[in-house]
């Protein structure tokens, strides 16, 4: 079982949820995926299009009121075991939008978060660091 867990931990598929982000963090996520310098595929990661395939969920954005129900539904569609990473300060604390009537931040009131990657936006290396941290947590959950 231990061997299977160890092998499984080398194939974490990433899924992005944009919870009302300004797209700054999404651009950085795309950067980690697409630019040869930050090649996230080395860790066995792959961005997948469907929440059903996801292992590590990357959430950006302050969870706006409009998108809240959709994000919660989407989160429920992701099969266990899963690890959640909050990318950028918006999901972690609300960031510059904290206290606005239009956002429900911080996101950990609604979704259990495992790793936080602060930054506005975080640099790609920081995101890689957060993903590596998430993989360690995921290994224990398998």
């Amino acid at each position: 079982m231990n061997l299977i867990s160890r092998i499984s931990a080398r194939s974490p598929w990433l899924y992005r949820i944009n919870a009302g982000s300004c797209n700054g963090c999404d651009v950085e996520l795309a950067t980690t995926a697409c630019i040869p310098r930050y090649d996230v595929e080395r860790l066995g990661c792959k961005y997948c299009g469907s929440p059903r395939h996801a292992d590590i969920v990357l959430i950006t954005g302050p969870l706006t009121v409009r998108v809240k129900d959709k994000v919660l539904r989407l989160y429920g569609e992701i099969p266990d075991p899963k690890v959640t990473v909050a990318v950028g300060i918006c999901p972690i604390s609300g960031g510059v939008f904290r206290g606005s009537y239009a956002v429900c931040a911080p996101i950990d009131q609604y979704i259990p978060i495992d790793v936080n990657v602060p930054g506005c936006p975080p640099r790609p290396q920081a995101i890689l660091e957060g993903v590596a941290m998430a993989i360690e947590i995921w290994k224990e959950r398998l």
Binding site: I4, S5, I7, S8, A9, R10, S11, P12, W13, G44, D55, P79, D80, P81, L142
Partner: peptide, 11 residues
């Protein structure tokens, strides 16, 4: 192969 092994552990 890793992907395949991983998928057996998912719900």
């Amino acid at each position: 192969f890793f992907d395949l092994v991983k998928l057996t552990r998912k719900r």
